[in-house]
C-alpha cells in the first residue's frame, strides 16, 4: 500500500510541468529602456567578467561575434526625423526554454535557481539550441580563441575558458551568485539578501537601467520593478516565460 502511494506521489512529482514546485531563487533582471543610453558598458563588462573572446574584425564581418549581451539598435523613421531605439539583448533565462528541450545530451538545463544553465563540458556542439532560441543569444565557439599576451593575464579565474565546438551564453554571472550563496551560508543565513549579488552588466550600468534580484522575494527591488505598468517580455507570443523583463520606453511627445 505504502509502496503504491510512494509510486503515485513520485509519479505526480515527475509529471509536474517544469518539475520545480518553486525555485529556491528565481533570478530576474529588469531593464528600463527609458534609462538605457545604449552606451555599451554592459557589453564590455560582460566581456571582461566572463572571459569572452575578442573575435577580431575578420570574424566579426563573417557574423561570428561573441558577446553574451548585445545592444540591439533599431532605427525608426527617415533621416531628418530618425529616432534610435536601444534594447540590450541577453539570455532571457526562460522558464519554458526551447533551447533546453532540444539538447540531446542535457548540456543545457534548468537549475533550481531558475537559471538556464549551460554545461560546457557536456556540450557536443549540435548548435540546435542556438536555432531553437528565438532571441539569438547563444554563441558558438567556431574555433579555439586566443588571448594575446598580456590579455591572458586578465582572464577571470572563476570562469571557464571555452574550447572550440562549444556553445556558450549569458549565465547571469553564475559565479557571482555562487559566491553570494556561499557567503550567505557562511554567515548562517538561508537566503542571499537583495542587492548582495549583481551580474557584471548590472554593476556597470551607469544609468542604473538594470535591476537584478530574486523575484520570489516580494520585498526585493526587482519585484517592484517588474510589476511596473511598463513591464513587458520580448517575444511574449512565443511563450517562453522569460526571466528578463523590459520596461517600455515612454514617449513624451510622440
Amino acid at each position: 500500500m505504502s509502496f503504491i502511494d510512494t509510486l503515485r506521489s513520485r509519479w505526480q512529482e515527475y509529471r509536474r510541468p517544469g518539475y520545480y514546485e518553486n525555485f529556491d531563487y528565481a533570478w530576474t533582471m529588469t531593464i528600463d529602456l527609458d534609462s538605457c543610453t545604449g552606451c555599451g558598458a554592459c557589453v564590455t563588462a560582460c566581456q571582461a567578467e566572463n572571459n569572452i573572446p575578442l573575435v577580431g574584425e575578420e570574424e566579426l564581418a563573417r557574423g561570428r561575434e561573441m558577446h553574451w549581451i548585445r545592444i540591439e539598435r533599431y532605427w525608426e523613421g527617415e533621416f531628418p526625423n530618425a529616432k534610435l531605439n536601444f534594447i540590450p539583448m541577453l539570455c532571457q533565462h526562460c522558464d519554458a526554454a526551447p533551447c533546453e528541450t532540444v539538447c540531446p545530451v542535457s548540456a543545457t538545463y534548468h537549475n533550481q535557481d531558475g537559471l538556464n544553465a549551460q554545461v560546457y563540458n557536456r556540450c557536443v556542439g549540435t548548435r540546435s539550441c542556438a536555432v531553437y532560441c528565438p532571441y539569438e543569444v547563444r554563441y558558438f565557439n567556431y574555433y579555439n580563441h586566443e588571448w594575446p599576451s598580456p590579455l591572458d593575464q586578465q582572464l577571470n579565474p572563476d570562469v571557464t575558458v571555452r574550447e572550440k565546438g562549444v556553445m556558450e551564453k549569458c549565465t547571469f554571472c553564475i559565479q557571482r551568485i555562487r559566491q553570494a550563496k556561499d557567503a550567505a551560508k557562511d554567515d548562517g543565513r538561508r537566503r542571499v539578501l537583495d542587492g548582495e549579488v549583481q551580474p557584471a552588466c548590472v554593476q556597470t550600468c551607469a544609468s542604473q537601467a538594470m535591476v537584478f534580484g530574486n523575484r520570489n522575494d516580494s520585498q526585493s527591488e526587482v519585484f517592484k520593478s517588474m510589476n511596473d505598468p511598463r513591464a513587458y517580455h520580448v517575444l511574449e507570443e512565443v511563450n517562453t516565460a522569460p526571466s528578463v523583463v523590459y520596461l517600455k520606453k515612454v514617449e513624451v511627445n510622440g
Binding site: R62, G63, R64, E136, Y139, Y142, Y143
Partner: peptide
Amino acid sequence: GIGAAGMNHPTVW
C-alpha cells in the same frame, strides 16, 4: 574548429 565552415551567428546550421 567548425569555423572552417561558413556558418555564423544566426545561421548555425
